[in-house]
């Protein structure tokens, strides 16, 4: 277990390093200089470049990034909030916290609603409830998040006036409702669909027949024998869900005018604020990698057949 965790951490660091390299070369490939404005002279640009170390060879710059990151120094912003340490922008300003709050909430909603809905559908297979849930989930995975977000905005904020049009800094409970629904609905539906399928799959397995032959109650068969087995594919899906929810936050934040990290990232890319681009990419990648690790460990807890040391398919 310990060696496994260490191995995984090593792999995660390596992955982050590669992501850093890719990001570094990509952002340096964005045409133009961050300091290029209508008024700036070549001398000014050169001066600014020298100040932030952008005049050094690329490979040296990359090395500096890596060394500084290992020291915990994420650099300072070049453009968006000139001179502010990137660490403060990401961790001490509301942007990151808002995005994380929204993301975790949506992830929780997807799991907490999706799995039971899938179970209910599988348990009542063929009933009107199953039919309704099937239609809902099928349509749900066909509606893009931004469509849902704007529709909600139009109906509940504009037409009915029940909810605020701008969620802003998410001051109260009401302002969370629409962003979280728009971010999680797709995943609620997907998780419910997945749970239903794998539940039905599990119900048809031989060990369910064995449990029935033992005289186990139907409720227990579903909750004990079928559910745990059917969770395996659902857990596998949670890694991509995390990445997907981060993605989803980009459009939802722009639709509901939430000053989150997603929107900020797009602005940084546009204005070539290298240190912020790098830090955001690394932090979000680390989040996804961390979730993948959590998923693998959850996997091990649910399915004893999986030995973490030799995970080969």
């Amino acid at each position: 277990m310990v060696t496994y965790t260490l191995k995984r951490l090593g792999a995660a660091l390596l992955t982050l390093l590669i992501i850093m390299t890719i990001t570094f070369f990509l952002m340096n490939a964005i045409p133009g200089s961050p300091f290029l404005t209508e008024k700036s002279t070549p001398q000014q640009i050169a001066l600014a470049n020298a100040k932030y170390g952008l005049d050094k060879p690329l490979i040296v710059q990359l090395k500096n990034y890596v060394v500084n990151y290992l020291k915990g120094d994420l650099g300072t912003s070049l453009k968006m909030q000139e001179g502010t340490p990137v660490r403060d922008i990401i961790f001490h300003q509301d942007k990151f916290i808002i995005s994380i709050k929204l993301g975790l909430l949506s992830l929780a909603v997807a799991v907490i609603l999706g799995i039971p809905l899938g179970c209910i559908a599988a348990y009542n297979r063929g009933s009107w409830l199953d039919g309704f849930l099937r239609v809902m989930t099928t349509v749900g995975v066909a509606i893009p998040g931004f469509v849902l977000a704007t529709m909600l905005l139009w109906i509940f904020a504009v037409k009915l006036g029940w909810l605020p049009t701008i969620s802003g800094q998410l001051p109260d409970f009401k302002s969370y409702i629409m962003p979280v629904i728009s971010m999680s609905f797709y995943y609620v539906c997907y998780v419910a669909k997945l749970t239903r399928t794998s539940m039905l799959d599990a119900i048809n397995q031989d060990y369910i027949r064995t449990a029935r032959a033992k005289g186990v109650k139907t409720k227990m068969i579903i909750l004990k024998h079928a559910l745990r087995n059917s969770l395996i594919p659902v857990i596998t899906y949670l890694g991509p869900v995390t990445a997907g929810i981060i993605t989803g936050s980009f459009v939802v934040e722009s639709t509901f005018s939430i000053p989150g990290l997603g929107k900020y990232y797009v602005q940084c890319v546009m204005s070539r604020d290298y240190p912020v681009i790098m830090a955001t990419t690394v932090v979000l990648s680390a989040l996804v990698i961390f979730m993948n690790l959590v998923v693998d460990i959850a996997y091990k807890i649910v399915d004893p057949r999986i030995t973490l040391t030799n995970k080969e398919d």
Binding site: Q205, D206, Y207, R209, T210, A211, A213, K214, K224, H225, R228, N229, V302, D303, P304, R305
Partner: peptide, 16 residues
């Protein structure tokens, strides 16, 4: 009444 099945590989629940 009890029953034993054909395939012992799949008739036991793998996660318990």
């Amino acid at each position: 009444i009890s029953m034993i099945f054909q395939n012992p590989m799949t008739c036991l629940n793998p996660v318990y």
